[in-house]
């Protein structure tokens, strides 16, 4: 575990150049990073192949095998991770939950990045009132905990899966707006944007094929921050029973359900908890690593 911590570059660590060089030389592919990458790939495979991989239907009851212990605790191979109170296979539910949580985080991140980047570039392009409005919105978003805003919206509108995914997309859009605006402003001051403009390119072309590629690496690194944050937010809300609703299931739902059986069947909550922690940890580690490679200026 200590090696792992050493490999995790800390936010705003001004590593002395020599040390950074040495570390990069010794550890172009640190083992902790390979493990993280392996885990993320495994999660992707599970999410994509969920229907094939799940041994049972995630809603199938097996009332003869209720609260079966997992194999490590003396259970049979038929239910590798045990079963819950209704005899549903924990492994199958876990696989479906991974798919659901990753899907929500994926679309949430995509929405946040697209919306934030668009608003940021527009603010930098239009200036004036529009920019002032975007800045006020950024201030508002940054000053309120997003979970509270999300809870308020869920209270007002009720819950439904489409609304929920879109809502997750509002998480941290302001990060992209801020970055995109700042970078676009400075790009506009640099020679290349002016040069392309003088050559007669329209705004679409300048922003789409010149400015955007130049700020892309910073935005991609930010996405590795948003993705685990949305997994945590989604699972928190689902844990409270206010996110993904049954019969659909997500990692947070499973933990919330397993909490009722924490004395009799702790494996129901332990399996999804471990997946949440390992996934967010792996993606954060990969993000830090990517940041060091792609964009040393970003903290």
């Amino acid at each position: 575990m200590t090696d792992l911590a050493a490999d995790l570059p800390v936010t705003a660590k001004p590593a002395p150049k020599q040390a950074a060089k040495l570390r990069r030389f010794f550890a172009a592919w640190p083992p902790a990073m390979l493990l993280a990458l392996g885990w993320v790939l495994l999660m992707l495979v599970v999410a994509l192949g969920a229907d094939i991989l799940a041994p049972y239907s995630f809603t199938a009851f097996d009332l003869k095998a209720r609260l079966q212990t997992p194999i490590g605790m003396g259970g049979p191979w038929a239910h590798a991770l045990g079963t819950d109170e209704l005899g549903r296979d924990v492994l199958s539910r876990l696989i479906m939950s991974i798919r659901m949580s990753l899907l929500i985080a994926f679309f949430g991140t995509l929405i946040a990045a697209t919306m934030g980047t668009t608003l940021g570039i527009l603010a930098a392009h239009l200036r004036g009132r529009f920019e002032a409005l975007v800045l006020v919105l950024i201030d508002f978003q940054a000053s309120m905990p997003f979970m509270i805003i999300a809870l308020a919206v869920l209270a007002f509108f009720g819950n439904d899966i489409t609304l929920f995914v879109v809502l997750m997309g509002f998480h941290s859009w302001e990060r992209y707006a801020r970055i995109a605006r700042g970078l676009t402003l400075s790009a506009n001051e640099q020679g290349y944007a002016a040069a392309v403009r003088n050559l007669g390119a329209g705004s679409w072309r300048i922003y789409g094929s010149h400015v955007l590629p130049n700020i892309a690496s910073t935005l991609i690194v930010s996405m590795t921050l948003t993705f685990p944050e949305i997994i945590l937010l989604e699972s928190g809300l689902s844990f409270l029973g206010l996110g993904v609703q049954p019969p659909l299931t997500s990692l947070g739902n499973m933990v919330g359900y397993g909490r009722e059986y924490i004395t009799r069947a702790p494996w129901i909550m332990l399996a999804p908890s471990a997946v949440i922690v390992l996934t967010t940890l792996s993606i954060s580690m990969l993000g830090d690593w990517l940041r060091d490679r792609l964009d040393p200026t970003l903290r």
Partner: peptide, 20 residues
């Protein structure tokens, strides 16, 4: 290193998991 390892957990372990 110990401090940093523990603090990584602070980011990646959701509060409901820690609580449980």
């Amino acid at each position: 290193r110990l401090t940093m390892t523990v603090s990584v957990a602070g980011f990646t372990v959701p509060s409901f998991v820690l609580a449980l």
